[in-house]
Design a protein around this nucleic acid. Structure first.
Lengths: 128, 128
DNA sequence: GGATTAATACTACCCAGGTAGTTTGGTCAA
DNA sequence: TTGACCAAACTACCTGGGTAGTATTAATCC
């Protein structure tokens, strides 16, 4: 888990990472199985993608018998933060308030979410 | 401005769009000039990119003398919302609170921003 | 009129994400 | 021991973003 988090991941890559983060480890077959619930992929597509991702340092593998067992090589939090931060900078010049403002006008946000947000902000303000 | 906003734009494309949103209209030379402050691009790179973007419906042009004058064909707000919303769904399953939580832990946020955020949330809560 | 200039058009790459077929090699059961 | 099966390896292709060189064309300046 030393690899620094990338600021961009493709759709498929992100889905694969999510599976690995959730399960800790997975074989190609398991990842393929899991993702195929949502959309069909060829087995080899997943295998190829995992190989490419390993080259990029996103995942690593060890061998069990003759099957590869993959695990994430970057932490979920780090990736989320990098990607979200990147977007924040690219689109809103780093202004969190601008981003939230845009998202609030275009999306349904439950009362519950709003309350959670209030608490987050209040909490953060206290620490300053 | 009928074109529906795309959920992904490359770096260069976004920078070009920002220039067009800001100025309303620009020639290739003007866009090239503006972007070259930050990083050098060949003139033809900008011209090619604009042509590709027109194919995709992101911009349109009219001719003045023999130079093309480009303008945005999608609204800034629509693009920001689409892109930010896409990211929100991809990374945080749509939970705004999760996203803000992550961003608050990893970034400097001024007291001022926090206050703006508070107001945004409060405002939104009232309207529910 | 011919040379220069400045604009677009055309063409060609590279790279990464995504997709998947084909090949190879090991394992296991009949 | 041979054939079926399964896993990885290899190869190839498409797409879109990014990059830029070369060709063409039209105006304008001497």
């Amino acid at each position: 888990m030393t690899q620094s988090a990338p600021s961009r991941l493709g759709d498929l890559q992100l889905k694969i990472m999510k599976r690995l983060w959730e399960k800790g480890e997975s074989t190609v077959a398991e990842v393929h199985q899991a993702l195929s619930q949502e959309k069909a992929h060829a087995y080899t597509t997943i295998a190829t993608m995992l190989r490419k991702m390993e080259e990029r340092g996103l995942v690593s593998h060890h061998v069990e018998g003759r099957t590869f067992v993959y695990r994430a090589a970057v932490r979920e939090g780090a990736v989320s933060r990098r990607m979200a931060g990147d977007m924040l900078d690219r689109l809103f010049e780093g202004s969190l308030a601008d981003m939230v403002s845009h998202l609030l006008t275009s999306r349904e946000v439950s009362r519950d979410e709003l309350t959670r947000l209030e608490h987050l902000i209040a909490e953060r303000k206290k620490k300053k």
